[in-house]
Simulated assay, not measured.
Amino acid sequence: MAVWDKNLLWSFMFLLAGAVGVTVIYPFTSTCAVRGSTVTLPCTFTPLKSFSDGQREVPLKIVRVRWCKNHEICQGSTPSVYDSNSANINSRYQYLGDMKTNCTLQIRDVQQGDNATFRFRMEADHPQGHFTNKTGVTVTVVDSTKMRIIRSSDDKKFSRGETVTLLCASVCTFHQLEVTWLKDGHALSENGSSLRLSPQTAEDSGNYTCALKNMKTLSEPYSLQAEAGAGGNLPLIAGVLFVVLLAVIALVLFIIKRKLRAAEGQRAAGGETELKVSY
């Protein structure tokens, strides 16, 4: 085999091995986002470390990362929602990754225009290291979502002292949304898609609503009403114990008083006998 043919073969093999080694992984390829919320698109990548130019192995270094919307290759003059080489980027799109392995993108204040497919592209200091994963992540934006509150049990009554967890639900997954909670119209300090009330007291009775942070969209009120449970009998038990304690104290005082009277009677009888003897 000629030297030129051997070099061509080795170059092809290195190129094939390099292409196989390059990866961009999206944990999920589709997600749902409520307009005005924040959605995070997790992403990891493995760049090509080097390539062969037919004579030697040339190391590669990632010099640029990009995220594009509705473009399969995301190259050249394609508009980017994020470009590490550009300072003119919409602040709603925040790159949470780096130039090594993490390519996570976060979209804040989701708008209807974000109803699209987002793709990540890495670019090296040589074209051999450029790569775009064409699969991407498709974001479905839901407008004016009707939110509601659910709990594991359909019973809206609870016994005092038990633990109750309320979940803010929608047609979208709320695991990464900024959710706030209100009780009887007043904001609670707790945040997140779930609200845990433990242990329950009578003060926890009321109407609960959840809302997306910095948004006016509210869920329908969810009413929780306390009913007497094991904890509800505490006042009765305390009252019974108090009555029993009073009875015991009264009995002890009665016995002591009776013994004192008996002792006084004995002393009186002894004094009268001594008086008769003296005469």
Rank of each mutant, 00 (worst) to 15 (best):
A226K: 05
R160V: 12
P59D: 02
G270D: 15
N90K: 11
M13N: 11
T23M: 09
V22S: 12
Q112H: 06
C68S: 10
S50I: 09
C32H: 01
T209D: 03
T173W: 08
V142C: 09
C74Y: 04
N233T: 13
G229H: 01
A238E: 08
R119N: 05
P235I: 00
F14E: 13
T201E: 02
Q55F: 06
V58H: 03
M122K: 09
H186R: 15
D53S: 00
T29A: 07
G76T: 03
V171M: 09
N233M: 14
V179M: 08
M13A: 10
I149W: 05
F120H: 04
R258L: 00
S205A: 12
L234H: 03
L241F: 04
A228F: 12
T78P: 00
I249Y: 04
G136P: 00
L188Y: 07
G36V: 00
F14I: 10
L224F: 00
D5C: 12
D143Q: 11
Q55V: 11
Y93D: 01
T135D: 05
D114L: 01
S219I: 03
T165E: 10
Q94H: 05
R258M: 04
Y222D: 04
T38M: 08
I255K: 13
V277M: 13
K49E: 11
D98Y: 04
T44Y: 04
C172M: 02
I89K: 00
L167C: 08
A124D: 06
L241Q: 11
G54F: 02
Q75Y: 15
K146T: 15
V3H: 13
T132M: 05
N115K: 07
S144K: 15
T101L: 06
L260S: 08
F174V: 08
G229E: 05
R56D: 13
N233W: 13
V139S: 08
R66F: 09
